[in-house]
């Protein structure tokens, strides 16, 4: 429940403050978005599975984000940032799809 409250507050804050993404952070925006979505759906599925844990939620989100940003940063330095960020997006996107499918099975039994 508490992460949901945080989510709502964050969305409202973003809509009200309208922060602009600095230029250096532009390549990391898709990574941040996909990691955030992954954390949201993973947490949701864990809740439905009955195995949710605050600690795992926080740690997994932070570590996923850091690793993804690290990969993209490394790729940027090597000149292949776009490709590596595509890889990150693919992996996390697959996870999101699987999680959503599991949620669907849990909710509708189909």
């Amino acid at each position: 429940m508490i992460p949901v409250i945080g989510l709502v507050v964050g969305v409202v804050l973003g809509l009200v403050l309208q922060p602009t993404v600095p230029l250096w952070a532009q390549p990391y925006l898709p990574i941040a978005v996909i990691a955030a979505l992954d954390a949201v759906f993973g947490g949701l599925r864990a809740v439905l599975d009955g195995v949710f844990s605050d600690r795992v939620f926080v740690v997994s989100f932070l570590s996923n984000t850091v690793v993804a940003a690290l990969i993209v940063f490394l790729g940027d330095q090597l000149g292949v940032g776009a490709q590596l960020s595509t890889g990150v997006v693919v992996v996390l996107g697959v996870r999101i799809f699987s999680n959503v499918a599991a949620i669907r099975r849990l909710l509708f039994g189909a």
């Binding site: 945080g6 309208q18 925006l29 605050d54 926080v58």
Partner: peptide, 23 residues
């Protein structure tokens, strides 16, 4: 401590999503 952490993570996630959408 865990409440604050999950709250912060949720806040960050919401912020990222809203910012990206606005951008």
């Amino acid at each position: 401590g865990h409440v604050a952490g999950s709250l912060a993570v949720g806040l960050v996630i919401g912020l990222v999503l809203a910012t990206s959408g606005l951008a």
